[in-house]
Amino acid sequence: MKRYVLSVLVENHSGVLSRVSGLFSRRGYNIDSLSVGVTEDPGISRMTIVVKGDKYIVEQIKKQLNKLIDVIKVIELKPDSSVYRELILIKVATTTKQRAEVIEIVNVFRGRVVDVVSESLIIELTGDESKIEALINMLEPYGIKEIIRTGLTALERGNKVIKEHN
């Protein structure tokens, strides 16, 4: 089972998300993450879908997605030619004593502290999966209270845009 990242242009109206997610569940495809947002054209949204599977499954997913009337374009974003990013917010337990130590770790990762109270901090970090996993590992000893992740979002490197793909 390999991980594949698909970038999908869809019509920006209600019901599209349920059509896409419904397709995955009813055909038994596994979604690792799905993130969606509006594009430079307000009528079009773009989804980044991370799936696990083999070549056959990904081929099927692309074809089945293309069959949906609301889907405008599907491309696969390969790791070597794409930028993968994810945003994470972590609420980590800190005593007053530990606070400076935690902030130091966050600085190494070029993360930001976005909320402080006496017993905890909220840390914001953007990066690829390995960077995010590394920060989580570093913070675990202090006690992670909550984590929220946006899921992967991605863009192809270089000048070419999704609409120029066949």
Binding site: E59, Q60, K63, Q64, N66, K67
Partner: peptide
């Protein structure tokens, strides 16, 4: 006519 049927 349906590409999704080919190879399914």
């Amino acid at each position: 006519i349906d590409p999704a049927e080919i190879g399914k």
